[in-house]
């Protein structure tokens, strides 16, 4: 490679490394803000500033879902299998919402320690299969739920 080309290559590499470093450090510094939600464990540890709106993410605990007969009011418990947070919500739930499913709720914690949600979104994990495969796996007693990716990293 000719010297002037080598020099240009050097400049490009220098710019690329410099940009990567600065972007990387910025993202690292902001990582708390880039996270979409807090986990129930983070809430229990008091990492969330009180009285503020925030998002909480976890799984809907099996057997915790209750809905009112005469309105759209629902309550359930969200969990990361370490800590639980009760959630109250009035509104339409996404189709994918069910017990054992990952959710993200927006709202704030009231004085009784209940998360009053204004919006509930469903998450889905990275596993796709047909109902037949799902049924076969369940019949074989294998755990088909891979929750690890949906609870807090």
């Amino acid at each position: 490679m000719k010297p002037h080309r080598k020099k240009r290559l050097g400049i490009i590499l220098f710019i690329a490394v410099g940009l990567s470093l600065s972007i990387g450090l910025t993202l690292f510094a902001l990582s708390q803000n880039i996270d979409l939600f807090y986990s129930p464990t983070q809430v229990a540890a008091g990492e969330v500033p009180s009285g503020q709106r925030f998002r909480i993410g976890g799984m809907v605990k099996d057997g915790s879902f209750l809905s009112a007969q005469d309105s759209l009011r629902v309550e359930f418990i969200t969990t990361d299998y370490v800590n639980d947070v009760p959630i109250h919500y009035e509104g339409i739930l996404p189709d994918l919402f069910r017990e054992g499913q990952g959710i993200v709720a927006e709202g704030s914690i009231d004085t009784a320690g209940i998360f009053q949600a204004t919006r509930v979104l469903a998450r889905h994990d990275e596993n796709y299969m047909s109902p037949e495969v799902k049924a076969a796996l369940e019949a074989a007693g294998a755990s088909t739920e891979n929750h690890s990716s949906l609870v807090e990293k």
Binding site: R123, D125, Y128, V133, A136
Partner: peptide, 17 residues
């Protein structure tokens, strides 16, 4: 942590996910 799923790992096993 995101609302978007993490990457899917595909498998050669036709009996699983």
């Amino acid at each position: 942590n995101t609302l978007h799923q993490v990457g899917t790992n595909f498998s050669t096993d036709s009996g699983g996910a």
